[in-house]
Design a protein around this nucleic acid. Structure first.
Lengths: 135, 135
DNA sequence: CCGCATCCGATAGGATACTG
DNA sequence: CAGTATCCTATCGGATGCGG
């Protein structure tokens, strides 16, 4: 039997910056959407197309610079389509690609897990912290 | 109809450092296992119980300090159980809790998505980079 | 309106040396 | 063996101001 669990071992067709099979598959996703804002942007765009400022205001808390960077990364990965309307003033629409929608749906599974188990996590933390404080 | 997608809107029973409904549920998970090593540790522990150095050597690339911190966090969240054997030399076993195993299984869904779509992601990036280089 | 450039602080995480 | 302590760097992301 294999000594490694599935997503640990991987084909690593293309070398990553962190070599030696570092949980390649999941990491590939997490390295993209594991940051603070990507998933949130994905979520809003899953509803409907948004303009830049529109999205920026909804996510309020992110700086414009980071909003831009985030969207660019998502665009680069083919998760989001960016459409520039050459009007005055300029108008840029962001919408999910089918790939992005697919990822969004997949992430909901994690979201759902979190939802179902957040009480357990909180309880575990409380127990742990108590035992540490007692010690 | 609701203007927000499910995991964007949340009860936020407990305030987070980043207020205003920041994709709470997914973030709750990602804030724990979204780092560089947690998922990898989870993966190895899903195979079987490991001793500290055993795990540390497998994940090779992580420093001992960070390995410790990572495992402590997982323990605090109730995902990993830490057992100290009062022997000489000391021996500490780490194993997944049922909750940890559950999370691991859930994360595999993401892993699987990444597996199925990594080609598309790579293609999208290639296209994007080419169009940027051409411009 | 959109987004880039610059600056700057916070933090994750690596290297190394030391301890029970 | 299983950590802890200290130091240090790299990266992320916020603030602000300019430019098309």
């Amino acid at each position: 039997m294999d000594e490694r669990v599935s997503f640990v071992d991987c084909a690593d067709g293309e070398a990553r910056q962190w070599d030696h099979r570092a949980g390649c598959e999941v990491r590939a996703v997490l390295d993209r959407v594991g940051d603070r804002w990507s998933l949130l942007a994905l979520a809003y765009l899953a509803e409907r197309t948004h303009r830049f400022n529109e999205l920026w205001r909804k996510i309020d808390g992110v700086s414009r610079r980071v909003m831009t960077v985030t969207l660019r990364q998502l665009e680069r990965d083919g998760l989001v389509r960016r459409t520039v309307h050459p009007t005055v003033p300029p108008r840029v629409d962001y919408e999910l690609t089918p790939l992005g929608a697919s990822l969004h749906r997949t992430v909901q599974v994690l979201s759902s897990w979190s939802d179902r188990h957040e009480a357990e996590l909180a309880a575990a933390r409380a127990t742990y912290d108590a035992s540490v404080g007692a010690a």
